[in-house]
Design a protein around this nucleic acid. Sequence first.
DNA 1: AACCTCAATTGGTCGAACCATTAGATCAAG
DNA 2: CTTGATCTAATGGTTCGACCAATTGAGGTT
Lengths: 246, 246
Amino acid sequence: MEGGFQPIRKRRLSDEVTLQIRARVAAGELRPGDKLPAERDMADMFGVSRGAVREGLRALEHAGLVELLQGTKGGAFISDGGNSAIGEHFRDKYYLGGISLVELTEARLWLEALVVRVATERASEADFDALEANVDEAERLLKAKRYVDKIDVHIAFHILLAEATGNAVLMTLMSALMEVMHDFAHAAGGERHDLTIRARRKLLQAMRRRDADAAVDAMTKHLIELQHRYRDVVRKGIPNDATSAR
Amino acid sequence: MEGGFQPIRKRRLSDEVTLQIRARVAAGELRPGDKLPAERDMADMFGVSRGAVREGLRALEHAGLVELLQGTKGGAFISDGGNSAIGEHFRDKYYLGGISLVELTEARLWLEALVVRVATERASEADFDALEANVDEAERLLKAKRYVDKIDVHIAFHILLAEATGNAVLMTLMSALMEVMHDFAHAAGGERHDLTIRARRKLLQAMRRRDADAAVDAMTKHLIELQHRYRDVVRKGIPNDATSAR
DNA sequence: AACCTCAATTGGTCGAACCATTAGATCAAG
DNA sequence: CTTGATCTAATGGTTCGACCAATTGAGGTT
């Protein structure tokens, strides 16, 4: 039943370290850019070994909360928390079999439609300029036959779109999904046609007209095409980029 | 310009460890439940110190990829990757000031609407039963004046809803957002009225009719009310639960 | 059968030493 | 005066070896 016991949680020392630092951050005492004491000093202050402090710091580093720099004037600095941690998580889950490709693409489609809808409502001139510039860049790379480089520019487009919504949560989510898609896109290889570019010009036109339905439609159609490509890629072998990329 | 140099990435030994293990997972050689060799053995195999291996394992543990158990028959086991890592990330970002409460609630509203829409389409009888049971449980707790316990049941409702979509990505995202909301909900305290419960009965009715618009409407209205509560709470002081909960 | 005890295994912690990297100071050469 | 080499101190990165703590299971005791 409900009113039960709590599972006993024993904390490791390093977890205690992360908790205390997180608490300082949550309390507003530590702000991005601030520097933490040296590992050796913190070990003294906490009354634990340096190794324990290190493990705690490394955990925070992986979480994107601190950045560890070497050398004099180095140390642990509070960062603004990057987005890569979440992407990594999804990637792991995919490879673990916890989520399937269809779920991933399905969710992406929904999320992307949402982003387009909101962005169409809110995008500023500056946002449009950035998006336009991105497509131009992609076109330039296509003409230069730099197909692989083009992939990353195309991915950046989606991030820019999310930024145009002005909502940091959406940006984070989109960044995470794009990180996973990055694997598939590179496995599929750079496209040698301009379908994507044309689809985006059309999308931008609709957005400029503030025609959300048309914009969502353009994006959706294009994504569905892409998904067929990815599906074929996966059939031929699950991409395994874990060793190289980062 | 584009054709630039790559920033030199130097890897720490522990990162090398995580990479190799992740690669094994990505290649399908390691499946959830599998056990990794003992730290001491891995240290020998990798040719590094045990400390380096430990740091790598701890990183994977925090990412939810492995679970570390003590004692004989203990060791590092591949897990299915929990959802808490992402939630933690959002929480950090919030406290770091990277995302605001309005962005959070706004994104939640969008996501929740999406979930309701999809769930209305796809929910099975079993899903409805689970949702119904959840609301019953909440009502029981309300009558027993166990307001704090009720909070968690209410939160679980949203997770159940996401599960009804059958999409693991949505479940993960919702779990993450709920983890953040958990802080606010507990800071606001358990409600002593049955508005939430009534709203949910109404929502479930609409879903059973497969009336997505009505369902979304019910959910949205209720959430907006809640948001006003949270906003007031935050005005009185940012909740800082980092020290206690986990 | 129930319980205790002990040993083996494995993660958790410690401490001291040393290596590697970096920023800045100092100095030398041009 | 600029450029570059060299040294120095600070700090993270790594190693080793030891010991502690938790868990399991075997074996013995009651």
